[in-house]
Nucleic acid binder design. Structure first.
Lengths: 328, 328
DNA sequence: CTGAAAGCGCTTACAG
DNA sequence: CTGAAAGCGCTTACAG
C-alpha cells in the first residue's frame, strides 16, 4: 500500500500525506489547541495509515522533555541493593514505558544527601521521576522543575501524588483476625523507622490493639528475612508469652518462622505468624498474609508521570486482601 | 569557579573553553582518531572542568544510536509475566545504564512471531538489545542492523555473544553430590523444552548419571513452583522408589518440597531435594542449591551492548558454587 | 588534523 | 487557524 522505505517515517511524511505543514502536523500530534477539526482529522488518519510514531529523542531535544523515567530509590546506604520488590517495580515500569518507547533508569537517592534530587531535576534526559521509599524531607525537596512529573510509591505531598496499597487497612485486618482467633499477645516486626509509609501500618496495628484493650508490642526490622529472624529473637526475649507476630512483609515473616522453627516453637500452635505482600513464596510456606498489588501500583505510578498534565495527579490507593493460610 | 547557568553545559561550552571548534570537541568526545594530542588534552580537561556530559537524545538524533537498551524476553505466551529473575535482570541493567543516562525497556518477544526482532531492529530509539530466554531460531533472525549491539543471557551464536552462568557444571556438581551421599534414583524436574539453555543442565545431569551407571529420569517443568509441585507428583507416580530430585531452579524446588511435605515424605530422610539459583529464600528453607550470580550476569550483558565495538564481544561464563544445606 | 555547514526529527514562537 | 523559520545538542561528510 505504501512503499516500504529504509528510513523511519517522520512527521514530514505524515504532514505531506495529510496535505498540511509540519507545524500543523506537530500541533495535532502534540494535542495543541489551535488546530481545525479538519486538520486533526487528516493528520490523525495519515499518522495511522503510515503507522507513524514519534521519535522520542527528537521530541526530547526540541521539547526538553527527557527520554527516560527514573526510579529514584531513597536509601540510608549509598549503594542500592535490588530486592524482589524493587525488581518488580522496575520491570513493571519498564513494560509500561516500552509502549511509548521511553526507557527507565534506576537511581539511588542517598538519604543523607544535601540535594539528592538536584541532578535529576536538571538532567535533560529525565522525563519524570518515580520515588520509592521516600521521606517527607525528600518530598519537600521536590523543586519546581520536577513538579508535575513526579509520583511517589509510598507517601506523597501537596506537590507529589502518591500511589500505594492500603497498608493501614491490611494491618488492621491482620491484627483483627489474630484477635478474633484468640490471640492476645501479638507483636509486630516493623520496617525501618526513617521510612514514613511504615507508619501507616504500625499505627493501624497499634490502634487495633488498643481498641481491643490489648498492649501493642513493636520491634524494628528492615524488610529483610534476617531482620525477621532477629526480630523474633527480640520478641521472645522481651515478651516470652507472645502468641502471635505480624511481620511488615513476607520476607520478614519467613525469617520469623525460621527462628521459631529453630527453637521448635510450633506455628501456629504456639505462635501465629502473619506477613504482608503475598509473594509467590508465601503460598508454599502456608503463610497467612495480605495481598500487595505491586505491579498495578508501579503501573499506575508510571502512568501518572507519563500522562502528567498541568494539574497534580490524584492519589490512588489499592486495596489489600487478607489471605488466610495455615500460619495464622 | 564557573558561573552556574540554568541551562545545561553543551559541547559548545567545552569547545569554547578548550579553544577549538565544536567539530573537534565532538571528535575527541566520540573517540575519533583524526585528532591531535593537544586537542584531546584541552577538550578532555575542559569537559572535566565543566562536568560536561553528553546529551543522549542529541547523540541519538545525530547518530541514529538510540536512547534505550531493551531487554527482549522471548516467551511462548504473548504477554510477559515478570518473575523475580527477570526483575533482577531488568533492575541490574537499569542500574548500569543509569550512569550513562540511558534507559532500559522491557519487550516481550513472542516465540511464534514471524519476525519478533523486526520492530526493534529498525526502531531508532533502541541502542541495543539484551536477549533473555532466547532460542536458536531467534538468534538466526538477528539481522545485520542489530549485529554488534546485542547480547544474550543464555545461548549465543556466531553473531551474538552469550553471557551466562555455568549451569552445566552446576548440574553435574549437584548430581555428583547426591550420588556421593548415597542417592541412586535421582530424578530431575527440568525447564521448558523450547528453551535451549536448559539443555546444558539436563545434558550434564544425564551424563553424570550415566557415568555413574545410573538411569537418568527427567520430567518437564517451567521454572515455576507450581511446576515443581506437579513435577513431584509425576516423579512419584513414575518412579515410586525415587530417593532424590534435582530441580532446575529454586522456585521449582520449593514446589517439589511442598508436595513432598503434603505427602508426609521426609526431606532429606526419604527424598533429597536440590535446587539452583540460591535465591534469598533458599536459605530460610534450608535448601541445598547452587549459586547463580544474576546481577553480575545482567551487568556484564549490559556492558557488552553498551560498550559494543566493531568486533563481537567475547562470551562470558560465570562459575556457580554448590551450597550445601539440609535438604540434600 | 581542523572548521564551517548541513542534518538528525521534532516543536514553538513569530507573523500572517 | 496555519506556514516558514529557527532552534534543541550533537555528529559527520566536505573542503581545506
Amino acid at each position: 500500500m505504501f512503499e516500504p522505505t529504509d528510513r523511519a517515517v517522520t512527521i514530514f511524511d505524515v504532514a505531506r500525506l495529510a496535505g498540511v505543514s509540519k507545524s500543523t502536523a506537530s500541533r495535532v500530534l502534540t494535542g495543541a489547541n489551535r488546530v481545525s477539526a479538519a486538520a486533526v482529522e487528516q493528520v490523525n488518519r495519515a499518522a495511522a495509515d503510515l503507522a507513524y510514531v514519534r521519535n522520542p529523542a527528537a521530541m526530547s531535544l526540541a521539547n526538553h522533555s527527557g527520554t527516560r523515567v527514573v526510579i529514584g530509590v531513597v536509601s540510608p546506604q549509598r549503594t542500592l541493593v535490588v530486592d524482589d520488590y524493587l525488581g518488580r517495580v522496575v520491570s513493571s515500569a519498564a513494560k509500561v514505558c516500552a509502549v511509548e518507547r521511553i526507557g527507565v533508569g534506576l537511581q539511588p537517592l542517598w538519604l543523607h544527601d544535601r540535594d539528592p534530587l538536584g541532578a535529576l531535576a536538571t538532567d535533560p534526559t529525565v522525563h519524570g521521576v518515580i520515588l520509592v521509599n521516600t521521606t517527607h524531607a525528600l518530598l519537600e525537596a521536590v523543586s519546581g522543575r520536577l513538579v508535575g512529573r513526579v509520583a511517589s510509591i509510598g507517601v506523597g505531598s501537596d506537590a507529589v501524588p502518591s500511589v500505594d496499597v492500603d497498608c493501614a487497612s491490611a494491618a488492621a485486618a491482620s491484627t483483627r483476625h489474630l484477635i478474633e482467633s484468640g490471640r492476645r499477645r501479638i507483636a509486630m516486626v516493623t520496617g525501618p523507622k526513617w521510612l514514613p509509609c511504615i507508619g501507616n501500618s504500625v499505627r493501624a496495628y497499634v490502634q487495633t490493639m488498643r481498641d481491643a484493650g490489648l498492649e501493642p508490642r513493636t520491634v524494628v526490622g528492615d524488610f529483610t528475612a534476617d531482620s525477621g529472624q532477629l526480630g523474633a529473637v527480640e520478641v521472645l526475649r522481651r515478651w516470652p508469652d507472645a502468641d502471635a507476630v505480624i511481620a511488615i512483609c513476607d520476607a520478614t515473616a519467613i525469617g520469623v518462622m525460621a527462628e521459631l522453627r529453630a527453637r521448635h516453637i510450633d506455628v501456629p500452635g504456639d505462635i501465629a505468624v502473619a506477613g504482608f505482600d503475598d509473594v509467590p513464596f508465601a503460598q508454599y510456606t502456608q503463610l497467612t498474609t495480605s495481598t500487595h498489588p505491586v505491579e498495578a501500583i508501579a503501573e499506575a505510578a508510571t502512568r501518572a508521570v507519563l500522562d502528567a498534565g498541568p494539574s497534580r495527579a490524584p492519589d490512588v490507593t489499592f486495596p489489600s486482601e487478607l489471605v488466610l493460610r495455615e500460619t495464622a
